[in-house]
Design a protein around this nucleic acid. Structure first.
Lengths: 186, 186
DNA sequence: TGTAGCATGTAAGCCGTTACATGATTGA
DNA sequence: TCAATCATGTAACGGCTTACATGCTACA
């Protein structure tokens, strides 16, 4: 109750609420498929240290997995206390406004320091990145098909993935528009 | 040449390229009107320590301002070396993809841990926040009118502000859409 | 007279990253 | 047999925040 961990801790804890038990390694992979797009995927080393902390607080439970055929590893499952804590975190006041670290917008802001060609290149590179990123997220989105209806496990992850796709589309529209405005300067 | 400072340092340096000389306090205010929306506005204490570092590297120049009528303070101006360094940073490889810390999307991802009403409230609160934020940015945008044409000082800041406004509009559209989808579940 | 804004910092501490270290298993 | 992947950490360090400290000026 009110353990007040860093948000990333709750984020990782949340990834353990989908009915399965993961190793630290697998948890990192899941983070790369989800958190990466609208939070940030913690480094491998942090995944382990967060898991250790969560275990210390009794929010996750480690257990050794000696399944025949595989080498023994440590898996983690969320505890009842973990679920309670997570729920109370979700209802704890306003979520807070998103923080954007947008190096493209930042460079564009001081575009007058460079030349017009530089700003145009900046935006075109961004459009390329967006396409790649959109593709990645789209693959994730497709992998949820069939379990994404109301009431199903991946309903919410699917909603969030759709959000992300719409966001990338919007960014691309905006970047193209600004690029056009820059080109009409000359 | 290749001093490799943190991005926030370059960001603050960039804010000194608009033809005026600022105190640390004023620089913080400018950051709140610009960086806040697509980077992050550093704490007051960090503004001072970054200025100290920039001065140490010769990228800004402090000087005392004893203008009659005001109490003496320290102002900073960008140096020639500072401009050079900033330009080379801007052209230094790809800008990097934006990192989003989106607590609303994060909470929505694990919406199944709470109840449907919680997710709906989350989104409605976000829509309120968006409106406030949009208003703030719109005030900033309006303050640039008249100096935002091609070739003028605030051309690029205006482009970035327009980007931000379009982004907020897009977020609101998406959030409303998801809210609608959630409501049609029941 | 008191409060809000202007102005400038120091210190402690957490979050998160990179670099480093180690070793088992699987498949080409 | 060699490389990639699985698997688990430790150590050092940087960035950034919060809390704290100080004092002046303008104005209600």
């Amino acid at each position: 109750m009110g353990q007040d961990l860093p948000v990333t801790s709750y984020a990782l804890l949340g990834l353990l609420t989908f009915g399965d038990e993961l190793t630290g390694y697998e948890l990192k992979q899941r983070a790369d498929n989800t958190l990466r797009f609208y939070w940030s995927s913690p480094a491998m080393s942090q995944v382990y240290s967060e898991l250790a902390r969560l275990a210390q607080h009794g929010l996750v439970e480690p257990f050794s997995d000696d399944e025949d055929g595989g080498r023994p590893t440590t898996r983690y499952r969320i505890t009842g206390e973990g679920r309670t804590e997570l729920r109370s975190w979700m209802e704890d006041g306003p979520a807070g406004f998103p923080v954007l670290k947008h190096p493209v917008a930042l460079r564009l802001l001081i575009g007058h320091v460079g030349d017009a060609a530089g700003s145009a290149r900046l935006l075109r590179d961004y459009l390329d990145d967006l396409e790649r990123q959109r593709k990645d997220l789209d693959d994730v989105r497709e992998s949820l098909r069939g379990r994404d209806a109301a009431g199903q496990v991946f309903r919410y992850p699917a909603l969030v993935a759709d959000w992300g796709l719409a966001y990338y589309d919007s960014e691309a529209r905006i970047a193209r528009d600004i690029l056009g405005r820059l080109e009409s300067d000359s």
